[in-house]
């Protein structure tokens, strides 16, 4: 069946044509989705779909080994690596799609369009009518054919890529490795430090617990209704994943105050000033690491 997929003709079988159009729609849809999704995790899933579609394309063109490798290595390993990093950075964080560089988006569109037109024109100009097909090359099977090439003509490149992979692995370890210059402080030392500095002697406040929100990402509220930032885990604060409910609460407080004032018939000037709703907590910049963070 595989050999029959790549006949030595200028056209393909109808089956392959149907398969191509379906896969092309999936691939382009996935690519566009990756480009347009606000959340990185969605982009990653869209790209996985594109890659799967491309894997099938490879197989349809007689590159069975590559198709499998595409699924195993790309969608299996590399995309998982991407997802890990996405989780590390914050799975729910969204990109602001507002462009900051002046004219960047317009220029990118122009360049992209021009490049696409050029490529298409180039391909169209090439007059690729006759496709030899791989039935002959794949006669003893696709994998043995590839192996013959890799271990004979391309053996040197193969060895070098091995060295490259090892270098990359070591490089990644070096880059992400955090050297401790001195021994990390123990809890006892941290407690003593806190007392000595007299900055935050009691434990940090717990996250807020409400009827509808009892997650760690919901800050507790201070008496005036503003959120207590210290009550949320520093990592969540950094990622900007703090769910601020103070606005909601303050709106309700204001409504309550107004209702009370209406009921008491007070003039507007005598009514108590209601604190303005706070802006939702922005991801903190690079503030000093908190003490309990180590």
């Amino acid at each position: 069946m595989i050999a029959g997929l790549a006949e030595a003709t200028g056209t393909t079988s109808t089956g392959e044509a149907v398969q191509f159009w379906v896969l092309a729609v999936v691939a382009v849809g996935g690519a566009l989705g990756m480009l347009l999704m606000r959340k990185a995790v969605h982009s990653a899933l869209c790209l996985a779909a594109t890659m799967l579609a491309l894997a099938v394309c490879y197989m349809a063109q007689g590159a069975v080994f590559l198709g499998v490798v595409q699924i195993v290595v790309y969608t299996g390993a590399i995309m998982m690596l991407f997802l890990f990093v996405v989780m590390l950075v914050g799975v729910t964080s969204e990109d602001s799609l507002k462009e900051q560089l002046k004219g960047q988006r317009f220029a990118a569109a122009l360049c992209g369009l021009g490049f696409g037109v050029l490529l298409v024109a180039g391909i169209a100009n090439a007059k690729l009518d006759h496709f030899t097909g791989l039935s002959e090359a794949n006669a003893e099977g696709n994998v043995p054919g590839l192996a013959r090439l890799i271990f004979t003509r391309y053996v040197w490149a193969f060895e070098v890529t091995g060295a490259l992979l090892i270098t990359a692995a070591i490089g990644a370890m070096v880059l992400t490795h955090r050297e401790h210059v001195k021994a990390p402080k123990t809890q006892r030392e941290l407690a003593a430090q806190r007392v000595r500095d007299n900055l935050q002697v009691p434990p940090l406040p717990a996250p807020g617990v409400y009827a509808r929100h009892n997650a760690v990402d919901v800050p507790a509220l201070l008496p005036d209704g503003s959120p207590a930032e210290l009550s949320v885990n520093a990592t969540l604060r950094e990622r900007g994943q703090v769910r601020d409910v103070s606005e909601d609460m303050q709106r309700r407080m204001a409504e309550l105050e107004n209702a009370t004032a209406d009921w008491l018939g007070r003039a507007s000037s005598e009514r108590p000033v209601v604190a303005a709703p706070r802006r939702s907590l922005e991801p903190a910049g690079n503030h000093e690491p908190e003490e309990g963070e180590q």
Binding site: A8, I78, F82, N142, A169, A172
Partner: peptide, 29 residues
């Protein structure tokens, strides 16, 4: 590769994948 009827294109694509894997590892780090 299909156009020319040889497997060299596939071999190069294979190498591209290897290099891409290395690149992703370092880049993500």
């Amino acid at each position: 590769s299909r156009l020319h009827g040889t497997l060299d294109g596939q071999v190069i694509a294979f190498f591209t994948m290897v290099v891409a894997a290395a690149e992703v590892v370092v880049g993500l780090a």
